[in-house]
Write a protein that binds this DNA or RNA. Structure first.
Length: 267
DNA sequence: GCTAAATGTTGAT
DNA sequence: TCAACCTTTAGCT
């Protein structure tokens, strides 16, 4: 699930339930026992999302930092909370609501300066109003690394993941193997704006859909199963626009998907 | 029921 | 470049 849209959606949904409340915090995992004890009974001042990072800002300058990684999940609901089963890392509760966190890559207590250090290594986040896309373009334009890699790098663009990476490059006809130095300003600007739109739609829908209606099979208002993406996870299938066979290969340990005709190499 | 893969990152080699 | 980490699910049998 978790690209940036998931994280921002969690923050948005959790705020009205938990911010301003004094929380009961517990765990059934030894590794977070100390953390839970330290947080238990504290008031939560804010919940913030930056890229794929979630920060729970507790009183007295204690931040709970959560990164879902590949497997992390959050469930929440109205009390009573279900019987805890499996590896439940954190449960937070108010009188009315509960929230369970499982399988996160990161779940740590941080000081303000430790939190700032994490923020300092993140690029602009398309989902944040205060983001500065110029920073991303400056990084890309002076790098000879491939655009495929740059568009997954959290220090270049925070919150983008493998699906949005593949899909945004496709939507703008960008050759994923071209170096950062080759990306024209106008192409970047269009891709950035588009990425913001797609990710905001992802926050609203709770899932990623990058295909335009005209490129999807007809369905009554809904996005039909399996028609959400242009190239992601479509290796060997026909491109939705030109019919060319969608390709995939491993780039820096992650599978990159692209259409060789819509995203041609200029070299 | 089992295996592999997955929308991610870190740290060692 | 690769393994490790943590969990769920899809696709087999």
């Amino acid at each position: 699930m978790p690209e940036g849209h998931t994280i921002h959606r969690l923050a948005r949904d959790q705020r009205p339930l938990f911010v301003g409340e004094r929380l009961r915090v517990s765990t059934i995992m030894e590794r977070f026992a100390d953390g839970a004890a330290l947080l238990d009974g504290r008031r939560l001042a804010a919940i913030d999302a930056y890229g794929k990072h979630l920060f729970y800002d507790f009183e007295d300058d204690v931040f709970l930092h959560v990164h879902l990684g590949l497997y992390g999940r959050v469930r929440s609901g109205h009390e009573p909370a279900p019987e805890p089963v499996g590896a439940l890392r954190v449960r937070m509760e108010t009188k009315a609501s509960w929230l369970d966190l499982r399988g996160p890559a990161a779940c740590d207590l941080l000081s303000p300066s430790e939190r700032d250090a994490i923020l300092a290594r993140l690029g602009p986040d398309p989902l944040r109003a205060d983001s500065e896309p110029e920073r991303a373009y400056a990084r890309i334009r002076k790098s000879r690394v491939s655009l495929a890699q740059l568009f997954m790098d959290q220090s270049v663009i925070a919150g983008i993941g493998n699906i949005y990476r593949a899909e945004i490059l496709y939507r703008h006809g960008i050759d994923p193997f071209a170096p950062g130095t080759s990306l024209e300003r106008a192409t970047f600007d269009a891709a950035w704006t588009d990425l913001g739109k797609l990710m905001r739609a992802g926050v609203r829908a709770g899932r990623i859909v990058t295909t335009d209606p005209a490129d999807r099979p007809k369905a009554n208002g809904r996005v039909a199963r399996g028609s959400s993406f242009y190239v992601y996870h479509r290796t060997g299938e026909g491109c939705r626009r030109c019919g060319a066979i969608v390709q995939s290969t491993l780039v820096a340990g992650r599978t990159l998907y692209w259409c060789p005709r819509e995203q041609p190499s200029k070299a």
